[in-house]
Simulated scan of single mutants.
Amino acid sequence: MGGMTDATTGPADPREEILSVVDENDEVVGEAPRGEVYARGLRHRCVFVLARDADDRVFVHRRTPQKLVFPSLYDMFVGGVVGAGESYDDAALREAREELGVDALPRPTPLFTFLYEDGAGHSWWSSLYEVRCEPPVDPQAEEVAWHAFVTEEELTRRLDEWEWVPDGLAAYRRLLDFRAG
């Protein structure tokens, strides 16, 4: 059954997940498997969810080496691609629950949307969210190699020390600007 999508587990191979392809205005112009979207640099949709615990610490993790994009890099967001026909809000909740391993997670609060472009021809529409997460968390072993809740000060110190996913770093800098003004 390789490649068949199951409602609870998704595609057997993540490269086969169907994504919406969107234009510069975030309008859907087609659909394609994730592997093709990545290989051809097609614009798609992603969600970024900043998870905080009761002490306002931020969930930070290192991605596994098996990830299709940005393997083994650090990230201050959980999230991922928005499936074809899926809303940003639904994707944010699904991705946060999956990656944090917390079923009772509340619906993430949307903050803003922006077009991420890496300067090398790859871009995706990105919707940024925030959610309160009460530990314990049980992150997916396929997604997360290491994790911790860190203070905002520690996160700021680590920005220049650790190798971060470039889209997450860009989203975090936009979030800081958003909060500043």
Rank of each mutant, 00 (worst) to 15 (best):
M1G: 09
G2C: 10
G3F: 04
D6P: 15
T9V: 12
G10H: 05
P11G: 13
A12D: 07
P14T: 02
R15P: 00
S20L: 06
S20R: 02
V22E: 01
D23P: 03
D23N: 14
D26R: 12
D26A: 06
D26H: 02
D26E: 13
E27N: 15
E27Y: 14
G30F: 07
G30H: 06
G30M: 10
E31P: 00
A32N: 03
A32W: 02
P33F: 09
Y38R: 11
R40E: 13
G41W: 02
L42T: 00
C46D: 12
V47R: 06
V47F: 05
L50P: 09
R52Y: 05
R52E: 15
D53V: 04
D53R: 02
D53C: 00
A54E: 15
D55L: 09
D55M: 07
R57W: 01
V60F: 03
H61R: 12
L68R: 14
P71C: 08
S72L: 06
L73M: 13
D75A: 13
G79V: 07
G80T: 04
V82P: 04
G83N: 09
G85I: 12
E86W: 08
D89C: 13
D89A: 12
A91C: 05
A92V: 14
L93W: 13
L93S: 07
E95N: 12
E99F: 00
G101F: 00
V102R: 02
P106N: 06
P106Q: 11
R107N: 08
R107G: 07
R107S: 08
L111N: 15
F112V: 10
F112A: 15
F112R: 07
Y116H: 15
Y116F: 14
D118W: 01
A120D: 15
H122Q: 08
H122M: 11
S123M: 07
S123N: 08
S127K: 11
L128R: 05
Y129E: 11
Y129N: 11
R132P: 04
Q140A: 07
E143F: 01
V144G: 09
V144S: 03
A145G: 15
H147C: 10
A148W: 08
F149V: 11
V150H: 00
V150L: 11
T151A: 11
E152C: 03
E154R: 14
L155W: 07
R158I: 06
R158P: 00
R158N: 11
L159S: 11
E161Q: 09
E161I: 05
W162M: 14
W162V: 11
E163P: 15
D167I: 09
R173F: 03
R173S: 12
R173H: 09
R173Q: 14
R174L: 15
R179W: 03
R179N: 03
R179T: 06
R179G: 09
A180S: 10
